[in-house]
Structure formats: C-alpha cells, structure tokens
Design a protein around this nucleic acid. Structure first.
Lengths: 144, 144
DNA sequence: TTTTCAAATGCAACTAGGTTGCATTTGAAT
DNA sequence: ATTCAAATGCAACCTAGTTGCATTTGAAAA
C-alpha cells in the first residue's frame, strides 16, 4: 500500500466557480485570488502564507471566514500538522475509505498531501467504534 | 494488528521519583501531585483538566513548565488530538517501531492511548524518507 | 437599469492557549 | 548553617483565531 503524492483534483477555475455558486457563495476579488492561489500552490498553506502571498487578503477575519466557507463547500480541506497552525490545501476533505495522509517534512516544514489506501484495518477494543483515521507521516521530503 | 487500550507503564511512585532525581529535577509539592494525578488518571489530560483537579496547581506558567520538564524527562507524553489544546498522558513518548495511536472519542472528547503494532509499512514516494507516523483514530468510545 | 437585501467586508475588540522576563523562594549538596 | 541553581509566582506578552457590528457589494427581482 504505497503512498503517492496527491495529484490534486482535476478541478479547474470554471468548476470551482460553479461550485461556489451552487453553495450560494458570491464571487468576490478575494475568492478569485484564493481559488487561483490554491490551484497553483503545491502544498498546504497557512493563514500567514496566504496573507503574505495575496495583496487581496487585507483583513484577518475576512480571510478566516473565507477559508471556513471554502472548507464547508468542499473546495479545500484543513490540516492540523501539530505545528500549532492550521494549514489548508486544495481538494475535498478525504472521505472514509479514501483517506489521504499528510507528510510533514521535519526539515522545511512543508506539508504534502499523499494519496494512499486506507492505512490500516481498524481493529479497536470491544465497545470502541472507529470512524476515521488521521495519519501524519513525519520525515524528510524530496527537496531536503 | 489489533489496537488495545494502553495498560499504562508499570511505573510506580518510587520509580518516577528516582526518574526525576536522575534528570536533576527537584521534588516539589506540585510535582508530587502531578505524578500522582498522571498515575491515577486513565486518559490524556489538558492543562485545564489539571488546573481544575489540583489545588497545588496555582500558577499557569509553573504548571506548563512542569509539563514540559516531565515530557523531556520521559515521564509523560503530549498529544495533539486536533482539538486545539495539547493533552498529556503518563508514559514515555512512543518510539519508532513501538508506536501507539490515540483514540479520540467524538462524543465525550476523551483521548485514549492505544498500543498497537506499527500502523503500516511506510511506502512513500521516491526521495521521501519517513521517520515516524502519528495516528489519530476518531470514533465512539466504550463509555458512549 | 434601478431597487433590494442578504451576503461579504473591514475594523476593533476579544478569547484561548501558551510563553517569557524577572524578582523571590526553596530543595538539596556542601 | 551556608550556598546556589532550580523552581515558583506574577505580570506582561504573543500568536492564532473568533465575534459583534456598521458599511459595502454582488446579483436577483422588478
């Protein structure tokens, strides 16, 4: 069961716009910029990363609210890599049976989404019921 | 590869005291209370849990500094269960090849340490090197 | 095209979780 | 008993993220 780098969803700009519309989200400058940014970037991005990269991101609460809205719309998913800051990456949250793992480079702190099979047959104690597994792999990435 | 509830380390009070001494940590009232608390409690505890439970825990920074010291001494380990607050449980941090997973109950928020085999043969893309895996299982616990 | 109105924005104030600097106190080795 | 690093308590600070509210804007209806 090998892990492979996530090739991103095949979604293009038009599709994401249609998705926003379907979710009742209006088109705004910031949202345009955010979608372009998430399609372009290869790895998970933090609030600070986005703030730094986009001149359109002027207000903290607006940006956070948009990240939340995008996540609820299934356009991005959030990742907790134990660094203390939430990161966001393009693509829907992995669903059960189609988990993806997050690889955190201990050298450059980059977070990669990796597709793979469900990481393990969940065999938990009596009375416990497992719903999903979140896997974080730590190591060194190809660039380090 | 079943997961079983962690039975805690066999460490008793005397042993933990000797451990503190070996690490050059002085005996204080708070540390006594903390050790007793961690031996007694069954699940991972947050700063807030401890603060509430121990009258000896008067100062925030002192408590945090002790948690850090205990973790460095290998007496407890910290857990990030994606709730936004760090939790601590008795026992050394799991080491490579002897990983343990954390089960987070989605109903009562309790965090259980679970022993199990290394969760998967790590097969990552070319150029990537995996060092360790952190697994969080979400579901419903036996009490819910 | 103008009107309309909920949705989105920008700003300030706030919260939670945790850290830092520093003066004072304390455990334990001498 | 003396000594001194380690531990404590306090206040101030930091970062990540949230909330309330007045203003602006996108887009659907008239």
């Amino acid at each position: 069961m090998p892990y492979v780098l996530n090739k991103k969803t095949g979604m293009d700009y038009k599709q994401t716009e249609r998705l926003l519309q379907r979710k009742g989200l209006k088109k705004t400058k910031l949202r345009h910029a955010l979608i372009r940014y998430f399609i372009k970037t290869q790895h998970a991005q933090s609030y600070a990363d986005i703030k730094l990269a986009l001149t359109e991101a002027t207000d903290k609460s607006t940006l956070y609210r948009n990240l939340t809205a995008f996540e609820q719309a299934g356009l991005i998913h959030s990742i907790n890599d134990h660094s203390g800051v939430t990161k966001y990456a393009f693509g829907e949250a992995p669903i059960q049976g189609n988990e993806h793992a997050h690889f955190v480079c201990e050298c450059c702190e980059t977070v990669y989404c990796m597709d793979g099979l469900a990481p393990l047959q969940l065999d938990v104690p009596k009375g416990f019921k497992a719903n999903k597994v979140q896997t974080i792999i730590r190591g060194t990435c190809a660039d380090c």
